[in-house]
Amino acid sequence: MDYYLKLLSFGPDGWGDELLAGAWITISIALATVPFGLALGLAVALAKRSRSPVLRALSTLYTTIFRGVPELLTLYVIYFGFQMLLQKLWTALGFTSNLEISPFLAGMVALGVVLAAFSAEVWLGALNSIQKGQREAAAALGLTKWQAFRLVVFPQLMRVALPGLGNNWMVLLKETSLVSVITLQDTMFIATRANVVTKEPFLFFGVAALIYLAFSVVSTWGFGKLEARANRGHIVHGAAR
């Protein structure tokens, strides 16, 4: 038992501080992905409702692709593809050195485009739940289209979209474990390395699992609070059940 505690201790002999740093990377990449992914998702959802058939077709193509392709594959294509593309540009510009893109950025972009595809469906459902009268009333008040969206539609959108976005967040949190395969030093990466050094896979992958589990449990609780807050002005039907 002492041996295991020592392995998990903070300091030069233990992996406690490394695991904590890994957990921090996990949270950082998940949080860094959210603004980009959700904003892109909302844009895709608006494109799906647009009057232009080209925009509609493109946005449908986008969600079909990124919802249907394994996240691992998306990650590889973006990581290696970007690398190759940038290297070509770099060489074409006359530089001879090797270029490496940051795994954090590649991971963020890959997770972000996937999050955008899934959240677009949530946004779309929420947009559809807002009655036409709201927009018409805003137009009658002389608001521009952008003002109507920002001041009238968007505040109502969040309330309906929140449960779906909560699910998106939980999925994202777990998907961040994939970035370890492109050498980003997240929880999973540290656990793998600790296993290689100490030959204690059950301990370290177990601890990694508990770290993710803790994040999930805290998120579930947090979203419950957020939903309660978003619904404070509404009577939720069936709440008594």
């Binding site: 998907e175 999973m188 296993n195 204690e200 993710y212 999930s216």
Partner: peptide, 23 residues
């Protein structure tokens, strides 16, 4: 269900393949 829905499949896979495989 909480454990298996709250942790990444990758962790579960490694826990079985490397973790249980170590015993």
């Amino acid at each position: 269900t909480t454990f298996f829905r709250g942790t990444p499949l990758l962790v579960q896979l490694f826990l079985v393949y490397y973790g249980l495989g170590a015993f």
